[in-house]
Design a protein around this nucleic acid. Structure first.
Lengths: 340, 340
DNA sequence: AACATGCGGGACATTTTACGTCCAGCAATT
DNA sequence: AATTGCTGGACGTAAAATGTCCCGCATGTT
C-alpha cells in the first residue's frame, strides 16, 4: 500500500471496475472503428442503456466523437488510449490473471489480491478481507454457511461485515475440534462470523478425528445429530487450503497414517481431506463434519489461500474440481497456474 | 495527459471529488481522535446520512474502527493516511489554489484546469471544456444566457453539451459584431451553443461599436430592440478576459482612443469594457449589447480565461468585482494571485 | 428511385439506490 | 440514577439508473 493506485483502490473501491469498463469500451471502439451503440453493447456485454450512459460520460469528457453514422474515438480519445497502453498491465494485470485461473480450473469466479502472503502479513489480511467480501456477495437470506478453521479463515472472519444484519443466516463449523489454538477453530470462526453479522450459529462439540465406533455413538446424540445435519446441508462452504504434511502434523495423525498418505503423494489438504497432485483424494476418514459428498452437493464452495508456497496445493485442490470460487493472492495464483 | 492520475480523471471524472471527500473524512477523524458521527458530519460539512454511507464504505475497507463510543482510524487507516501525505499536494493542489482564489477575490466558485494555456493548445481546450461544464451546471430551465465572443468562448461552445435538451433556454450574443473571424463572433457562439443543446437563440445584427446617433436610430428597430432587451435581461453572462491593448487593436479602435485608454492604465478587457489594475473601468462606450449595469444585475457572471500571460488581466477584471465564477488554468490562477 | 438497415437520441415506466429523518439500545460519564 | 453521545436499524421519499420502445435520419442497396 504505497503508491497512488493502491491508495485509490482503498478509498474508492469501485473505481477499478469503472475504469476497466470504460477502458474496455474505448478499446473496443478503437479496434472496431466506426460502430453503433447496439452492436457495441453486444461486444462489451452491457445492456444498451447502460452502455449509453457510459458513452454519454465519455463523450462529455471529449473522448468520443459521435455522429449520425456511428461513433469513433476523438483525437483526445485516441491519445488517451495510447497513453494508457503502458499502464494497462499495471492496472488490469490481476484481472487477466483472474480470468486465466478461472478458465484453467473451470471456476465460477476468481479474486486475486496483489502481493504474496508468504512475504507480508499485510497481504494475508487483505486476502482475508477479499474472502470476506466474496462470502458476503455469495450469501442469500436463509443460507447455511459451513466454515473451516485455520489462520486464513480467522483473518477472513475478523474482517467480515454485512451491510444489514441477517438474522436468518446460519454459520456452522464444517468440522469438529482440531486441538489447535482456539482462535483458529472452526467453531470459533463460525461464532465470530455470526456475531459480526447478527446471524445465528451452532457449534459442533466433537473432535474432528473419530474412530468408527466413537463416530457411531456420538452421532446418536440428538444435540450433535442436529448440528451435523445442518452442516451437511450447508449451501455455502468456505475453506482454506494447506500443505498436506503440515496439516497432517498439525492434526497429529499417527505416524503410520502420515507415512501412508505421503506414499500416496498427498500434497494438499482442504476440508479435512488430502489430495495428490491430480486432485485425487488419497486419504479419508470418518468425520462428524462435512463429507466429500456434502462438498459436491453444496451450492457454493469458496476456497481461500495465498502465498507462493501454497500455489501447488491450491492447484491440487482445484483439480479436485468442486470449488466454485477461489480467493488467492498474486503469488499463489501464478504458482497455481504453473502447476496446471 | 500522461500519468495515471490524469487518465483516471478523464475516465472517472467523479473520482477526485470522492477521493477528496473520503480523504477529508479520514483526515478529520485522524486529528479529532475518537469522534461521533454527528459532530464529524458538522466538521466535514456533510449531512449525517451521507457521511454515514461514506463511513460504511470506509469501514468496509478496513480503514475505520467503529465502536460504541465513537470512531477512530484503524491501523490500516492510519497507515493509509500516512502513505497519502506525500501525494496530497499532487492530488488536491489545484483545489487549494481554487479556494485561495475564491477567497482572494470573493468569488462564488473557481475552477482551475492544470497547465498553462500559453504553452499548450491542449490546455486551451481543457479550459473550454471546464467552462462548458461550469456553464451547464449554472443553467436552469428558462434561463437566458448572454455570451461574448473570442477564441476561448469558441472552444467552450464547441465542447458544450447538455444531458437533455432544454428547449426553453435562450442563448444570446452579449454584444454585436466585432469584425473578427466569424467563428469567434458572439453571434456564432450563441448559435453554436443553442444548436448543441436544442435550445433557442437570437442574433444581434449590429456592429459592436456605435456612434451615439447610430445607436439611437438602430434601437428603434423592433427586431433589434427585442433582442437587446433579452440580452440585457440575461440571467447568466459568460465572457472571456483579454489583454486591453490586444483587444483594442482587434477592435480597431481609433488611435486617439487607444492612446487615451493606455494613458488611463487600461490593462484588461472584458465584455467590451477596459479595466485598469484596480478593476476600475477606464473606458466605456455606447453599445447595443450588454452594459455594465446589466452585468451587475445578472444572476451569474462567468469569466473564462487562462494562461500566465493573462493572469494580470484576470486579476484586474476580478477586482471589478462582478464575476461570480472564474474558470482558468493553473498558470493563470497563480499569476492572478500574484497580482492580488 | 424506392427501400431497407443501422445509427443516435428522445421518451417513459420501473426498478434500484441514495437520502433525510427518527428512534431504540447501549456505554460512559456526570 | 440520570444524562449524554454513540452506533445502527427502520422507513418513507426523492433521485438516479435501467430496460424498453420508438422516431427521424443518414447511408448503402436493390
Amino acid at each position: 500500500m504505497r503508491n497512488l493506485l493502491e491508495i485509490q483502490k482503498k478509498l474508492v473501491p469501485d473505481m477499478m471496475e469503472i475504469l476497466q469498463k470504460r477502458y474496455d469500451i474505448l478499446h473496443r471502439i478503437s479496434t472496431s472503428g466506426k460502430i453503433g451503440r447496439r452492436s457495441l453493447a453486444a461486444e462489451v456485454d452491457l445492456t444498451e442503456r447502460v452502455l449509453r450512459s457510459e458513452l454519454e460520460t465519455l463523450r462529455a469528457q471529449g473522448l468520443l466523437s459521435i455522429g449520425t453514422d456511428g461513433m469513433a474515438l476523438s483525437e483526445a480519445g485516441k491519445r488517451l488510449l495510447e497513453d494508457m497502453k503502458p499502464l494497462v498491465k499495471e492496472l488490469f494485470g490481476l484481472s487477466e490473471l483472474e480470468e486465466r485461473l478461472q478458465a484453467a480450473f473451470g471456476l465460477k469466479r476468481v479474486v486475486i489480491v496483489p502481493g504474496d502472503s508468504d512475504e507480508s502479513d499485510h497481504v494475508k489480511w487483505e486476502l482475508g478481507r477479499a474472502g470476506a467480501h466474496v462470502l458476503r456477495d455469495s450469501m442469500s437470506p436463509g443460507d447455511v454457511v459451513a466454515v473451516m478453521g485455520g489462520s486464513t479463515m480467522f483473518r477472513m472472519a475478523a474482517q467480515f461485515s454485512m451491510p444489514t444484519a441477517q438474522r436468518d443466516n446460519w454459520f456452522v463449523p464444517a468440522r469438529g475440534g482440531l486441538g489447535e489454538s482456539v482462535d483458529y477453530q472452526a467453531n470459533t470462526i463460525a461464532s465470530e462470523l455470526a456475531k459480526r453479522t447478527g446471524a445465528r450459529y451452532r457449534m459442533l462439540h466433537v473432535p474432528d478425528h473419530l474412530s468408527e465406533e466413537a463416530y457411531q455413538s456420538i452421532m446418536q446424540e440428538p444435540g450433535v445429530r442436529e448440528v451435523v445435519d445442518m452442516i451437511r446441508g450447508a449451501r455455502i462452504v468456505v475453506h482454506g487450503i494447506g500443505d498436506a504434511m503440515t496439516m497432517a502434523r498439525r492434526r497429529k495423525l499417527v505416524p503410520e497414517t502420515m507415512e501412508e498418505i505421503r506414499k500416496d503423494g498427498a500434497l494438499a489438504e482442504a476440508f479435512g481431506y488430502y489430495f495428490d497432485r491430480d486432485g485425487k483424494v488419497v486419504h479419508r476418514m470418518a468425520t462428524a463434519g462435512l463429507r466429500l459428498e456434502d462438498i459436491e452437493a453444496a451450492g457454493v464452495v469458496i476456497g481461500i489461500a495465498g502465498g507462493r508456497s501454497k500455489g501447488e496445493a491450491i492447484a491440487s485442490v482445484l483439480r479436485f474440481g468442486h470449488d466454485d470460487i477461489l480467493v488467492t493472492d498474486e503469488a499463489g495464483a501464478l504458482e497455481a497456474l504453473r502447476h496446471h
